[in-house]
Structures are given as structure tokens and as C-alpha cells.
Amino acid sequence: MAKPFIKPVITPREAAAYAAPGKSLMVGGFNYGGAPYTIIEALCDSGVKDIDLICVDTSYFQTKVPGPVGVARLVTNGQLRSLVASHIGLNKKTQELYTSGKLKIELIPMGTFVERIRAGGAGLGGILTPTGVDTVYEEGRETVELDGRRYILERPLRADTAFIRAYKADAAGNLVYYGTNRNFNPTMATAATRVVAEVDEVVPLGEIDPNNVVTPGIFIDALVLKGDGEYASRT
């Protein structure tokens, strides 16, 4: 019998190195919930720029201490080339860059956002949605009429790399989630060429009930332990 493929457990810095200038990157989570903070911190430290980020929001930016949180640091560091998101209302810096034309941003409804990613993971050519029809959002977008109703054709979203957050993994990369970790992370895990999951712990094979697995290990390329090494006090 063939042995199961064991996923490598890498350092946060090794994970961050997968993000490259001009490449697309998905990051899971919504504000504080379900974000892979350890990998994000390493990515900020790496200084890599010109990232095409796909993330539902740009987290929270405070003008006072402690300052930007999570993905917000990527914004304030000037590490993004473009952004696809649904919510930038908690980050004044993102708003400033957007309104001044210094950061290209595509704002899309949250349901449309996740369905475009799901379509990308499933290999679909796109989705049809009535959301945004007859609004400014429709401008410049292709529409289709079916059975007397008009829909916007939304193209699938995929990325070169995805950084996601889960609660626990086994050695083969099968993931289970806890609470709000299970927001955009399972969907993003299906829609990237390379997927790195940040987890609280990695347990031996057989310790996770197969019925509890949400993301099968076939989607996962590597694992990072939350708060690993130098990031223990920062996440």
C-alpha cells in the first residue's frame, strides 16, 4: 500500500517567499476572524512589493498604537499593486490610496466575491448573478438575459498562491476549522496553484475523524504553525 503524502511544515518566512512581485495572492479571513496572521507578519517583513491581493477586506487600521493590523500592514507598507476586495471601510489608508488613484482596486459584493472564487476552484467559466444589475456596478460588465431576467456575468477568481487559516491539520494536510476560521478559507483553498495553511497544531494521521475534515489535504501544499519562532509574540 502506498504511503500517504506528508505535507511539509515550513517557517513563516519560507511561506512568505511564495509571494512574488506581479503575482496574485489570496489571503483568507475577514478583519480579525480567520486571518493567517503569522504568515502575514512574515510577508510584511519580507518587503515584497507589487502583490496583486485578493482578500475580502483590508483589515483594521488605527491611527494610534498599535497601528495597522494584519493585511492592513501590507497596505500601509505599500506592498500592493492591486486589490480585489469587498470591504475597505475600516481602513482609511486603503480609502486614501483608492480615491487618489494610487492603488487599483476592484470592489465587488461579498457574495459575488466568494462565488467567483468558488467558480475558480471548480474550474467554471464564471457565474451569473442579479446582484448589481441596474446600478453603477453594472457599468462595463457583460450581462446575460435568461427567462426575462438580466444577470451580470462574473468571471472566476484564482490566484498563484493562497495563505489560509485553519484550526488543525493532520500530517497529510487535511484541515478542520474553528468558528470564524471557516469563512473564506475553505473556498480559497480550492482556487490557488499553491496553498499554505496556518494552523494551531499538526496531529498524526488518523487523529482527525474523516467526517470532520472540511478541506482535504489534496488542496494543501504546506503548513505553517501559528506563532512559529520569532512570531510567537506577534500573532
Rank of each mutant, 00 (worst) to 15 (best):
A169V: 10
R155T: 13
G126Y: 12
F163T: 09
G126E: 04
T180R: 14
T180L: 15
R118C: 05
T131S: 03
G121S: 10
A197V: 14
L157Q: 02
D147K: 15
A192V: 15
G123A: 11
R165F: 07
A166S: 09
A192G: 15
P186G: 07
V176D: 00
Y177C: 06
R150P: 00
R165L: 04
A122G: 04
I127E: 00
D147W: 13
E198Y: 14
E115I: 04
E115N: 12
P186R: 05
E139H: 06
N181K: 15
R165P: 05
Y137G: 04
T143I: 11
R118S: 07
T135M: 07
G148K: 01
A119W: 03
L146G: 04
G121C: 12
A166I: 10
I117S: 08
V176S: 01
R155W: 15
D200G: 15
D170A: 02
A162F: 09
G126F: 12
T135S: 10
D160Q: 05
A159T: 06
Y167F: 14
E201P: 01
E115D: 07
A159M: 04
G140K: 01
G148E: 00
A171K: 08
T135R: 08
T180M: 15
V195D: 03
A159L: 03
Y137L: 11
L175P: 10
A171I: 02
V199S: 08
R155S: 15
F184K: 02
V144A: 01
D160C: 06
D134A: 13
A169P: 08
R116N: 14
K168S: 13
V202S: 12
K168R: 09
D170L: 01
E154C: 07
K168L: 15
A192M: 10
N174A: 02
L153E: 09
I164V: 09
V195Q: 05
I164H: 07
P186Y: 11
V196Q: 01
M188A: 00
T161F: 04
T193H: 08
T135Y: 10
M188H: 00
Y167P: 05
L175W: 10
A192Y: 13
V202M: 13
I152K: 00
V136I: 11
E198T: 12
Y177E: 06
L124F: 14
L175A: 09
N183Q: 12
V133P: 04
Y137N: 04
N181D: 15
A159H: 02
R194M: 13
V133C: 03
P130H: 08
V144M: 06
L157M: 12
N174H: 09
R194G: 03
T131W: 01
N174D: 01
V136K: 13
G123L: 08
T180Q: 13
V176E: 01
E142Y: 02
R155F: 15
E154S: 01
E139S: 08
G173I: 12
E154P: 03
R165D: 06
R149Y: 14
D134I: 10
T180V: 15
G121V: 08
F163K: 07
E201C: 09
R182W: 09
A191H: 07
T180Y: 13
N183V: 11
N183K: 06
